[in-house]
Design a protein around this nucleic acid. Structure first.
Lengths: 239, 239
DNA sequence: TGCCATTTTTGACGCTTCGTCAAAAATGGT
DNA sequence: ACCATTTTTGACGAAGCGTCAAAAATGGCA
């Protein structure tokens, strides 16, 4: 008998299984449609067993978010390796962010649920920290590129600006833009069809505002997006 | 006896009362803490009566959001009257948006709850439309300023950009930025203290990116914010 | 004022979901 | 085969939602 028995392996793997099933239900039925009895039934185990791994429903949701966040980190880590000037590499990052949203559409819905204070408050400090850590890793990668931009001379920030603040700007546009896109009837009313393209453009204009060379008028960053997609993310389905 | 009796007036006024009480509970206890029994108890009426005015809990939440949105429209309508160049008036709009978030902090929490698809799906088409209409009014006001900017020569948009798209950018930064500010431990980790100031700066940089004159390097838009606050919004408490 | 048709309010009820925990089942060491 | 320990189970109490038949309030009229 191996030191780790079959049973033990089954238990070790269960959290992952629970999250897989939960994600499936969440995708189909959303926050209100995800409930512990349904997870248990779908898993073929008793409800009580789920509570051995997650202290409540909200914790399951947070764990799903952390899981997808790991995927995003992996994508960012690939994007950062794109060969080019700092601003092109930042565009590669934008491409990664866009592909992430497209390929893991449930993540944004999870983020929205978790942004409700009374929901996140029910989760454990520990998992919350795990989420923060994952986010910080994404931010660090992006901030690194801003520093590269400064070091290579393409970007010079005013005295009172720090690299992290530029990241905040990009993050706001992406987070805000994707949120508005997904959940607002309003957009259609505005006659905007291609929201992804628009988020790209706005990120570009923001960086133009900081005077980061080459400006988007000098270099076609949409072409860079295509390049990044074929060179780095060819394993993701075409749009 | 007047044509409208005391009783009738009481009934007509009840939705407003319900929303007042609900907002109070929501502020203190959030989405999960707001429940129909609690509202009824606090109002001194039976639960069933509430259902004469709102078809369910989510509808109450949506109605609260529409109510605050009206406040925002009023603030935007005041801001647009600021005397100055188009870009300064846009700054006035930014000031209004900022003051709105500060003075109606529950609105953002409401937005977050309502951005969850399984929650908004429980509400009536009718109220959803009311929210969209209110949002469109805000957007129109801002888009009008972009057009003024173009007309007065300070701004010239590239061919493939429409005024509404600029609004989308500003809206994304504000929506995204305020969301991140409110609900993220991450920000503190990033060493960002003054989120409001940062949202202002990012909006400015975005408009700089579009080349909207005078650029933020040529005119101190933070000074404009102070001016707007004293001239137009003196009835709002100082920060 | 008293009567009664109509409107409005009430809160008990059935249903769903949450999270718990004592009892039952499974495990694995001897 | 036995049994101490670990793991699973699902019935249960609590809480909240939305409903609806019964009760109460209203207001027009004699």
């Amino acid at each position: 008998m191996s030191t780790v028995t079959k049973k033990q392996r089954e238990i070790i793997d269960r959290p992952r299984q629970i999250l897989r099933v939960s994600r499936d239900i969440f995708r189909k039925r959303g926050y209100l449609g995800l409930n512990m009895d349904r997870i248990a039934e779908q898993m073929g185990i008793a409800k009580g067993t789920i509570y051995q791994h997650f202290k409540n429903k909200e914790e399951v949701i947070l764990a799903m978010a952390v899981e997808t966040l790991e995927k995003r980190i992996a994508m960012f880590e690939r994007a950062v390796l794109f060969q080019g000037c700092a601003r092109s590499r930042m565009a590669a990052m934008g491409c990664a962010a866009e592909l992430f949203v497209i390929n893991f559409p449930d993540h944004f819905e999870l983020e929205k649920v978790l942004s409700c204070s009374s929901i996140i408050e029910k989760t454990s400090e520990k998992l919350q920290t795990a989420k923060t850590v994952a986010e910080m890793r994404c931010i660090s990668l992006v901030a690194g590129l801003v520093r590269d931009g400064i070091a290579s001379g393409g970007l010079s920030l005013p005295n009172d600006f720090k690299p992290d603040q530029v990241v905040f700007g990009l993050w706001s546009i992406s987070y805000g833009g994707y949120s508005i896109m997904e959940s607002q009837e309003t957009l259609k009313q505005m006659g905007i069809e291609n929201g992804f393209r628009l988020v790209r453009d706005m990120n570009n204009k923001l960086l133009d505002g900081f005077g980061w060379k080459p400006l988007s008028s000098e270099l076609d960053y949409n072409a860079i997006f295509d390049e990044v997609r074929t060179l780095i993310f060819s394993d993701f389905p075409k749009p």
